[in-house]
């Protein structure tokens, strides 16, 4: 059974000019121990999707299942039972750590609040967690401003692990870090996944990162899922026109096979009260009248879903 499953999930925000459809009818499953990569450009709702699943935002409609149980509408008390299991690693380790707490205090507070240990055990558990995420013990009493980005993100990861989570939303956990540090943190996340059997939802706009770490990939465009498939398959056969354009933006390292770059024209349409129909139609080179109808996610190959009514025509499948 899938550990996390969302069905027709919607998260809307009311603003002065209307309703922002940040997440608009997203459906997918994440199997236990796997990593689901979520890609898309800025503002496509991928962060909101992650935050909605772990109840940092309230969903407007649809359902969220954890281990088969519907956790969409939980009261405060019930929510606390799931808080430990559903955690998040924020994008920016410079703002997600309290500047007035030492490394030890930050990790210890989470351990204490997880209520899994006696007070006397806390210090020892902090040591274990610090070793697990690779922070030297001499930094135990350091403050966040004394650490570099990679170490800070390790502290954030340790705080998350202190809650003994099953599912972690990684919200662009490496995009604020130097490239040289990114790989270290990614490897750490993969090692921890193997060791602790964690399930990740990995949000990013960096395609090389998502390819490296994900088992499955969801491609989002303006709050909707346009394509989802196992990672390898997606990179081999990007069916949806948007995915195709997105993947063509990865620089090629092979000089004999120069990749054709597809340059999208036009602006991303507004997520405020959008028209029904394909959201990508305004920029899509294949768009016709038929695209003004609401789109359905269709399984074109085993486990490979695409939301495009013209997919058979344009790809010849």
């Amino acid at each position: 059974m899938a550990l996390i499953e969302v069905k027709e999930l919607k998260t809307y925000f009311k603003v002065a000019r209307g309703t922002v459809h940040a997440v608009d009818g997203v459906t997918f499953k994440i199997e236990e121990g796997k990593t689901m990569g979520v890609v898309g450009e800025s503002g496509c709702g991928k962060t909101t999707l992650g935050r909605t699943i772990i109840h940092l935002e309230e969903s407007t409609d649809g359902q969220i299942f954890y281990d088969g149980k519907d956790i969409t509408r939980l009261r405060r008390k019930e929510l606390n039972d799931y808080r430990d299991k559903l955690q998040i690693i924020f994008q920016d380790p410079y703002s997600s750590l309290n500047p007035r707490k030492t490394v030890e205090d930050t990790i210890q507070e989470a351990l204490y609040l997880s209520k899994r240990f006696d007070k006397s055990q806390l210090a020892g558990e902090v040591t274990k967690l610090m070793n697990m995420v690779g922070i030297d013990q001499r930094l135990r009493l350091s403050y966040p401003h004394e650490l570099d980005g990679g170490r800070r993100q390790r502290v954030v990861i340790a705080r998350t692990l202190a809650m003994h989570p099953k599912f972690i939303v990684c919200d662009e956990p490496v995009s604020a870090l130097d490239v040289s540090i990114q790989a270290q943190v990614l490897n750490l996340l993969q090692d921890l996944q193997e060791e602790l059997g964690l399930t990740y939802m990995f949000i990013t706009h960096d395609l090389s990162v998502v390819r490296h770490i994900s088992d499955d990939i969801c491609v989002m465009y303006l709050g909707q899922l346009v394509e989802t498939s196992p990672s390898k398959e997606l990179f081999k056969h990007p069916y949806h026109p948007y995915t195709e354009a997105l993947l063509s933006s990865i620089p090629s390292t092979d000089i004999h096979h120069k990749r054709e770059r597809i340059l999208l024209k036009g602006e991303i349409t507004s997520p405020i009260d959008p028209e029904p129909g394909c959201r990508f139609a305004a920029r899509c080179p294949y768009a016709t009248e038929a695209c003004k109808q609401p789109q359905k996610l269709e399984e074109v190959e085993p486990n490979h879903f695409v939301s495009c009514c013209r997919i058979h025509e344009i790809r010849g499948i």
């Binding site: 924020f90 500047p99 507070e109």
Partner: peptide, 26 residues
């Protein structure tokens, strides 16, 4: 609005704890 306040909520800190040990010192 800082992220560490939200982070404190995700580790199940009560409102009183968040105010006393995260918001006020800052």
């Amino acid at each position: 609005k800082a992220e560490y306040i939200e982070a404190a909520a995700t580790i199940k800190a009560s409102n009183a704890r968040i105010i006393m040990s995260h918001v006020l010192p800052n």
